[in-house]
Simulated assay, not measured.
Amino acid sequence: MFKLLKNGHCFAPDDMGIKDILLANDKICDIKEEILAANLWDVEVIDCQHCLVCPGIIDQHVHITGGGGEQGPISRIPEIMFSKIVEAGVTTVVGVLGFDSITRSIAGLLAKARGLEAEGITTYIYTGSYGSPTETLTGRVLTDIALLDKVIGVGEIAIADYRSNHPSLQDLRTLASEANAGGMLGAKAGVLHLHVGDGEEGLQSLFRLVEESDFPINMFVPTHINRNATLFDQGIEFLKRGGQIDLTAGETKGYSVAKALAMLVAQGINLEKVTVSSDGNGSASNEGGISNIGQLFNDIRACVLENNLQLSMVIKTVTLNPARILKLYPQKGCLLPGSDADILVLKENDLSIYRLIARGQVVVEDQKAVKKGKYEN
């Protein structure tokens, strides 16, 4: 019933110093300098001495049903497995459909999300796909968001990409209207999650949309912003206007996550509206042709170990910041009494995963999944 994490250096994600954390079933119920196991019944004690204790990672851009398809049927990427997600330190995932809305569907995305949640993590999805009019389950973005519990926004809608159908400003305005209204009616984030390609237009259509409408700027989440220097500069401008941006892990042609965050910090930009996601299980230009969800965790480690950025600042880009943008805070993205028991415990010396707890259950020990999905060996 109870789990007691003893003597860990807690980042909630702000630095709290050495604390004990008491979990009851799937919730955090207490955080103190000392909690005595002798006062508890049916308690499992986890020694976290010489460890850093953080919220579980929120990955807001994962192709859970598989991405790809751009090179024909053989390039369709299989569904992601539960163990791959948790071994990446991820306890909450948001599924996206992406380019292929012919052999994939919102119904399949929703079913996969429900399956992963039954296996032990928290899941949400975006309705929609690259195109516009975009894919939905109920026939409208608005009703998908308002009525389907797992749908928290629309995306990834592609702009500045030859694979998109180049949505007009009116198309984007309609999508934003539907997402905004659906979010209001369903008490959801109602975000418009935008895939931004390498096209020359970059973020220009988003700038025009914000300038020529009254939509709240914080409902727009443009991703892949670190894919080239010009787009990154536009992302900085969007931040300065009050917007938010999402960086993609594993970027090799533009700026790495560590480089991009270091550049933002050097310019004195507050990172509270900057997030990082993996694009996991989507198509990639690497040898395997698949984006590795684990690259997100690798990039976060590199920010601290190789670029000397503060862990409390970097970890927010994959915990507190996405939780606030997606309106999951304080249930997710933090270590607070009453929050979900999603906890990432890292070894202090090398930031490798010592334990990962998802919804109160230990799912990873010493970097290996101790719980696997229904159809995993």
Rank of each mutant, 00 (worst) to 15 (best):
N25P: 00
N25Q: 09
D26M: 02
K27I: 10
D30A: 10
I31V: 11
K32L: 06
K32W: 13
E34H: 13
L36Q: 08
L36N: 05
A37F: 10
N39L: 08
N39R: 05
W41P: 00
W41H: 15
V43W: 14
V45Y: 10
V45E: 14
D47N: 14
D47Q: 09
D47A: 08
C48H: 08
Q49T: 12
Q49S: 10
C51S: 10
L52H: 07
V53N: 06
C54Q: 06
G56C: 01
I58R: 01
Q60P: 00
H61W: 15
H63F: 04
I64P: 00
T65S: 09
T65R: 03
G66A: 11
E70G: 06
Q71W: 15
Q71P: 00
Q71M: 07
G72S: 07
G72E: 11
G72F: 14
G72P: 01
P73G: 03
P73L: 12
I74K: 14
I74L: 04
S75G: 05
I77H: 00
S83L: 14
K84C: 02
K84Y: 15
K84T: 02
I85L: 04
E87G: 01
E87Y: 12
A88H: 07
G89E: 12
V94S: 01
V94E: 13
V96C: 02
V96I: 13
V96H: 06
L97R: 02
G98T: 03
I102N: 12
T103Y: 15
S105R: 13
S105T: 13
I106N: 03
I106M: 11
I106L: 12
I106T: 09
A107C: 06
L109N: 05
K112D: 12
A113G: 04
R114F: 12
G115N: 14
G115I: 06
E117V: 02
E117A: 14
A118L: 10
A118Y: 08
A118K: 13
G120Q: 12
T122I: 05
Y124N: 05
Y124A: 09
Y126W: 03
Y126S: 05
S129P: 01
G131R: 13
G131H: 15
S132E: 08
P133C: 04
P133L: 02
T134Q: 06
T134C: 06
E135K: 13
E135L: 07
L137A: 02
L137C: 05
T138A: 07
G139W: 15
T143H: 10
T143L: 13
D144P: 00
D144L: 09
